[in-house]
């Protein structure tokens, strides 16, 4: 098991390296798209700033508090996006037949498709998310304790893992519907957008769904509410604040199963 993971990681890095070299052939284009990525991903925060130019709080949360949510969501999503953000090419690869060429290589197909079109320009989203997060940490008036200090990196890591699981599950879905790559956007891009706003903004049933059904709430909402000392709209036991790594592990396991089922279905149907 450990060896298989190590091999997969190695293959991933080999292929990602090839994509980086490919992008660096066109340096100007890379610089432009990198700047563009920074700008595009920054628009979400610009919208929040615009909202706060007209109001002082949203759902009872102040701007630095919303910025804290935003920074956590954008950074962890940014990491997942950098690592697996191009998995939506799977459908195209299946349609044009190039997916088959991955299956004759002595390397994990998941690693190969995960590294496909690896793009360093995606560092843009991580960068602006991290900047906002840094600002929020300084100005959100957090009453720091060791537990809260520990929670921040934990949230980022678990959040990134949860988003990675969504990307893999989305890719697995493309084995069934090759044209429907956009569905996963609702969960990935939609998910990160959703988590940039306070949970108090949303209807109770909606928050319930996003906490228990599709556990996005554990990316930042639940632990961040604790760090900021704000009540979560749902009654949850205190320990759930530490649940994100567990939730992430379950999500990754389920996504892995979905991927295997999808790949098996592909290999038996060839489409």
């Amino acid at each position: 098991m450990g060896e298989r993971v190590r091999d997969a990681l190695r293959a991933y890095l080999l292929i990602a390296g090839m994509w980086i070299r490919s992008t660096m052939i066109y340096r100007t284009s890379f610089a432009v798209t990198m700047a563009g990525n920074l700008l595009v991903t920054g628009l979400d925060f610009a919208t929040i700033l615009l909202m706060f130019s007209r109001v002082d709080s949203l759902g009872g949360w102040s701007l630095p508090e919303v910025a804290f949510l935003y920074g956590l969501s954008a950074t962890s999503f940014g990491v997942a996006d950098l690592v697996l953000g191009s998995m939506d090419v799977l459908g195209t690869r299946i349609r044009d037949g190039s997916f088959d060429t991955l299956l004759v290589r002595p390397a994990s197909v998941l690693a190969q498709i995960g590294a496909d079109h690896f793009a360093l320009r995606r560092l843009g989203r991580i960068t602006q998310g991290a900047v906002v997060l840094g600002w929020a940490l300084a100005f959100a008036g957090i009453d720091w304790t060791p537990a809260k200090v520990l929670l921040v990196p934990l949230m980022l890591a678990a959040g990134a893992a949860i988003f990675c699981a969504l990307f893999v599950a989305g890719a697995a879905f493309q084995f069934l519907a090759q044209d429907a790559a956009e569905v996963q956007n609702a969960f990935t891009y939609g998910g990160t957008t959703l988590l940039q706003y306070p949970p108090t903004v949303f209807g109770k049933d909606f928050v319930r769904g996003v906490t228990f059904l599709l556990p996005l709430g554990f990316v930042n909402w639940v632990p961040a509410a604790y760090v900021l000392g704000r009540p979560y709209p749902l009654r949850l036991p205190v320990w759930t604040v530490w649940a994100p790594p567990l939730v992430a592990a379950v999500c990754c396991a389920l996504a892995g199963l979905a991927w295997r089922a999808g790949l098996r279905a592909y290999r038996s149907t060839g489409s």
């Binding site: 519907a177 044209d179 429907a180 790559a181 956009e182 569905v183 956007n185 609702a186 939609g190």
Partner: peptide, 8 residues
């Protein structure tokens, strides 16, 4: 793709 877009 259209159905996916409607959903998103």
């Amino acid at each position: 793709a259209t159905a996916a877009g409607v959903f998103t």
